[in-house]
Amino acid sequence: MAIEKMGRDVFIDSNVEEKEGFIRTGIDKLDRLLEGGIPCGFTVVLLGSPGSSTEILVKQIAASGEVTYITTEETKDEILDTMRRFKWQIPNIDFVDISEKYYSNVLKGEQKRVSIYEQRSKMKLKELIEIGSTAIPSTVTSEEDFLAIVSNRTKEIGEKKTIIINSLDFFLSQYGQENVLKTVYAAKVNNLKNKGALLIVMTKGVHGELFERKMEGLADAVLELDVIQKGSSFERYLSVKKMRNYAKKIGIARYVIDDSGFVLEMIERIM
């Protein structure tokens, strides 16, 4: 679809006033682009092409205030390291570190696997029979349900808080799309009730067009980060593809990443 250039180019000044009914992203120019931030209760899907540095944007938003950060790709420590490098203030972030849990589970599973026979050879059969005939299983063994963690955490969060899920890719690799959608939908409903902001990150173009459409349909707002080759250089664009009830906020902005993080350079209004 060709975007007709009928809008006006705007250079944005910094410092946006705090606006009622919006949650600020903490990136001034982005808040400006969104004219105040993310409307309360909105579910925002952040689609990122590979190389678009979505993870930096997300962390910068996380550094802006009281945020619950569900991380699947990086551990808490890795995230904090990056934040320090950019010299962002590190506020009170509530981390839900699925990444750590997942990798330690995988690791534990692997260790066990190699030692079944070893373990077997160490055990005396008579003792084993004795234990088997008297004991109660110590744990109800079941693998951790990460989707349930997401559901539970998004339910518990207080009013006007920001929740970041980075990223949905992990859940899609572990669970069926239907189940993931259900969880996302439940999180959306909770977020609407809490008048917070729910930011869901997923990689663009890897989960199938249909699923992407479903996610875009479910979201109140869709932000897309793209990398476009221009001659010998790459240009990065952030586009606001969808903004429910705020059609005029649809727009596109070029951005770069510098020492301070995400810098939006220019906004092009489409409407």
Binding site: G109, S115, I116, I131, G132, S133, A135, T141
Partner: peptide
């Protein structure tokens, strides 16, 4: 008659995966 909880045996073997 021996009644044995297989889950315990599996647990001891490290077979506690789903």
């Amino acid at each position: 008659v021996n009644i044995i909880d297989l889950r315990i045996i599996s647990e001891r073997l490290g077979l506690d995966t789903e």
